[in-house]
């Protein structure tokens, strides 16, 4: 216990101290501003600050109101999407006590079993009382937060199925091990992957609202800065964090303001038509890309404190939304092979 507390007290690498990788950072901000963008897929080689950035994100995440003691982080103000416990408490006329806390980053380890992810029979309760009780899993913890999966392309297929099931409606339905239960589970899916280790199932790929390609930084100055900052952080985490505190605070304020402003951002009909046309021309499957593009463009505008979506925001949104959804034509690569150089 003591050990854990110690780790929690040691600050993580501050988000604002991460050098470069602007696109990756932007992708994360946009998802924080509007969680219904529903995720970010980060593609890139090893050692490109992918995981560091996601873990550091906790630093600048906004606060939300949750029902005190609720394992599913219910929103006391959203009557329509309470878990059954809060629901019955509310219908009994009880006033749901709420607390404020930061949005959480919940990590789904690759080794997690399906039981652990969806939740399972509470063993202790079953043995002690002979009663069935649902033991919430990772999906419950991730509700209204960020579900982070490192190397998401290596995730077990069954766990991927569960994620897809859950992402479709924002509800986790459990029918297993004698337990019949469902609870809200809306989360922002953030995944990292190294494409060299295999691709993602198309269905899952589509669930990530945005996708960024991260490359190693080639600018020598920036590289030096990375090494220096890392060393300074290792040497004195508290002092280092303090150094970047002002920047972090400013960044969280900007994000908070953007969340607040999102509702006021207007996208004209022309813009909507442009978005639809872009999606149709790109030949993507389904309609998700249109919807996500609109949300993203609005979030970009909100981030820059603009009230109107222009083509600039749409272009930025398109570059995050479309590439990973474009259908690869059969034998595309084979056809282009002759013209490519070796290596």
């Amino acid at each position: 216990m003591h050990h854990q507390t110690f780790i929690a007290d040691r600050p993580g690498f501050p988000f604002s101290a991460i050098v470069g990788q602007d696109k990756l950072k932007m992708g994360l901000f946009l998802n924080v501003i509007n969680p219904t963008i529903s995720g970010l897929l980060i593609r890139g080689e090893k050692g490109t600050a992918k995981s560091t950035a996601v873990r550091a994100l906790a630093d600048i995440l906004p606060s939300i109101e949750v029902v005190k003691g609720c394992p599913f982080q219910c929103d006391p103000n959203a009557q329509a999407s309470l878990c059954f416990q809060c629901q019955s408490r509310a219908t009994m006329g009880e006033k749901l006590e709420s607390v404020k806390r930061k949005v959480k980053v919940v990590e789904l380890p690759l080794s997690a079993t399906e039981d652990r992810v969806v939740g399972t029979l509470n063993m202790e309760h079953a043995l002690k009382h002979g009663e069935k009780k649902f033991e919430p899993g990772i999906l419950a913890a991730a509700h209204r937060g960020i579900l982070y999966i490192d190397e998401v392309n290596l995730l077990d297929d069954h766990v991927v199925d569960v994620l897809l099931d859950c992402a479709a409606m924002g509800v986790n339905t459990v029918e297993r091990e004698g337990i019949s239960f469902s609870h809200p589970a809306k989360f922002t899916l953030v995944g990292t992957m190294n494409p060299e280790e295999g691709e993602l199932r198309p269905q899952l790929q589509d669930r990530f609202g945005l996708c960024v390609q991260v490359e190693g930084i080639t600018d020598p100055h920036q590289r030096v800065a990375i090494v220096k900052r890392r060393a300074a952080f290792e040497a004195d985490p508290f002092g280092f964090t303090k150094q970047f505190e002002a920047e972090s605070v400013q960044l969280s304020q900007q994000i908070d303001a953007a969340i607040h402003n999102y509702g006021d951002v207007v996208a004209d009909d022309d813009i909507l038509f442009d978005i639809a046309r872009l999606a149709i021309e790109a030949g993507v499957d389904g309609h998700r890309s249109d919807i996500v593009m609109l949300k993203t463009a609005k979030a970009v505008a909100a981030f820059h404190n603009r009230k109107q979506v222009s083509m600039d925001e749409v272009a930025e949104a398109a570059s995050l939304v479309l590439p990973h959804r474009m259908r690869r034509l059969p034998f595309d690569d084979v056809l282009n092979m002759g013209s490519k150089k070796v290596g």
Binding site: E131, D161, D165, T173, V174, E175, R176
Partner: peptide, 18 residues
Amino acid sequence: ELPLCATEDMVVGAIDME
């Protein structure tokens, strides 16, 4: 709804443990 991760006992039914 039949979720993909359902177990057999929940689909066909089983002895009521409680």
